[in-house]
């Protein structure tokens, strides 16, 4: 049943200030992604100041008609993650938010993508190795959205490991006999198998092999299957951050 006032919890994944002082926020909630406008949200001192990027918020919104853009009337902060502004983490937080945004275009994905994004952002906020957290959660976000590459067996003939090629277009690893896609080091293939089949905790504990290869695979894979991620090359912003080198 349509209700004019609604209260929902979510993470601000995009925030756009308008010259009028209003803010249009894209919020990822357990029920899906939605947008709302916070009237005069850029003015300091109002309760809408909590509506910052990556904030976990509970929002009261109002719609006169079901198809209207929601007007955000009250915002309560559930958790801010201040470390996400740090130069070595900010581009990676952008990457997770942008990927979650791209994966939820016009589809309802249930609550798991919200939970993975929330966990990923929290992980970035407290990890000493944010790049690893970002890579792990990017692959997991792709997986819960149904875009994970097939990594257990050869995409083409069904052979088991070793699978030293990554077929971007086909969406998975391939064996030496099929030779489809880009050649990748054996460790990267092992990383992918673990990241996509074991619990997240195990993936986070694993020292990933060549980060630049992972980032490049992510860039090319997302670019073909989901969308070009503008924040992915920017992860090189981070001093010492791996650049997305060619495989």
């Amino acid at each position: 049943m349509f209700r004019r006032y609604q209260v929902s919890e979510g993470i601000v994944i995009r925030r756009r200030s308008l010259p009028s002082g209003d803010v249009v926020a894209t919020i990822l909630s357990q029920g899906g992604k939605w947008r709302g406008v916070a009237r005069k949200g850029t003015i300091p001192g109002g309760n809408l100041g909590r509506l910052s990027l990556f904030h976990d918020v509970t929002v009261q919104s109002y719609r006169r008609h079901e198809q209207d853009l929601a007007v955000l009337t009250q915002v309560q902060l559930n958790g801010a993650l201040p470390n996400l502004s740090r130069p070595e983490i900010y581009p990676l937080a952008n990457l997770l938010a942008e990927l979650a945004d791209a994966l939820t275009v016009d589809v309802h994905l249930g609550e798991r993508i919200y939970q993975y994004l929330a966990s990923g952002l929290r992980g970035l906020n407290r990890s000493s190795d944010p790049e690893r957290v970002a890579i792990v959660f990017c692959w997991r976000l792709l997986q819960v959205a149904g875009f994970a590459p097939r990594v257990r067996r050869c995409l083409h003939c069904g052979a088991g490991p070793p699978l030293p090629h990554f077929d971007i277009v086909g969406g998975g690893l391939s064996c030496d006999a099929c030779r489809a896609g880009l050649p990748i080091p054996a460790e990267t293939g092992d990383d992918l198998r673990i990241l996509l089949s074991e619990p997240v905790r195990i993936g986070l504990d694993r020292p990933l092999s060549e980060r630049a290869i992972h980032l490049n695979l992510l860039r090319r894979y997302c670019g073909y299957h989901v969308a070009e991620l503008r924040s992915l090359p920017a992860s090189a912003l981070a001093p010492g951050g791996a650049r997305a080198a060619d495989v």
Partner: peptide
């Protein structure tokens, strides 16, 4: 600005 974007820009410049 004191937004996350402004804060990240300031920290990047600070470095």
């Amino acid at each position: 600005s004191t937004t996350v974007e402004g804060e990240a820009t300031a920290m990047y410049l600070g470095k």
